[in-house]
Computed example of a mutant assay.
Amino acid sequence: MGTFGVFNSTSKDSATPAHGLNPCDWTRPEEEFYAVIARAKPIIQTVVARHRTDGRPLTWRLIHSIEGEVLTELNSSKDLQPAYINLIKHSGVFNYPVNDDPVDFGKSSAIACAFSMIYDVFHRVH
């Protein structure tokens, strides 16, 4: 049957969380989300710094690539829940292009969290 949320429906005890943590020890959802953001910031800064030294502009292809590197790093940590990591990535709803055109969000007020953070760091003047 697979997983639903943080509970593993294929475990022997359907009330046992898939990650094995005690639910009483969980932080509030917004704290978990902000923990993901806090962990993502230095990762984004490191990855963006590496790409900025290449002298390339921030293209749609590059922002997708940077996002992938950041998500891979976040998902490798054992203390962050994947459900909260997924909240910062882009969804297929916005249908962002994957090409070599410069990133332009236009007048959009709905931008994926990771994309917004990457864009800000990439264009920050040091």
Rank of each mutant, 00 (worst) to 15 (best):
L74P: 00
L87N: 14
R56K: 15
G20S: 14
E69H: 14
A15E: 12
S108K: 06
T53L: 11
T10N: 08
A40C: 02
N95W: 04
A38R: 11
G5K: 07
T46K: 12
V121M: 02
T72K: 11
G55T: 13
P102V: 12
K107P: 05
T10V: 00
P82T: 06
R39F: 05
A49R: 09
R39T: 14
N22M: 03
K89T: 05
E69G: 07
A40F: 10
R56V: 13
P29I: 07
N75Q: 03
V36E: 02
T72F: 15
M1K: 12
E30D: 15
D13E: 09
T59E: 11
N8G: 03
V93T: 12
E73S: 12
S108M: 03
Q81T: 05
F115T: 02
K41R: 10
P17T: 02
P23R: 09
E30K: 08
Q45R: 07
S65V: 02
E31M: 11
L74K: 12
T46F: 09
T16K: 13
T3Q: 03
K12E: 09
I66M: 10
A18E: 14
E73F: 10
R124M: 04
A35D: 05
Y96W: 04
S65F: 00
T46L: 09
L71E: 01
A83Y: 04
E30G: 02
V103R: 11
E30W: 14
G55H: 12
L62Y: 12
L74G: 00
V125L: 10
I37G: 01
E67A: 13
A110L: 15
H19M: 11
H51K: 15
N86I: 05
I111F: 09
E69Q: 15
E67T: 14
V93Y: 11
W26L: 14
N99Q: 10
E31P: 08
N86H: 15
A35C: 04
H19K: 05
I43Y: 08
T16V: 05
H19Q: 14
D100P: 11
V48H: 00
P97V: 04
I43G: 03
H64S: 01
I85W: 07
E31A: 04
G2F: 13
N99C: 09
Q45A: 05
P57G: 09
F7N: 11
T27K: 15
H19L: 05
L62P: 02
I111L: 02
K12N: 10
V121R: 04
I43T: 09
A110S: 15
E30L: 11
R56N: 12
E31K: 03
K107D: 15
A112N: 01
Q45C: 00
S108G: 02
Q45D: 02
D100F: 09
C24R: 13
L74R: 12
H90R: 11
P42T: 03
F33V: 10
E32I: 06
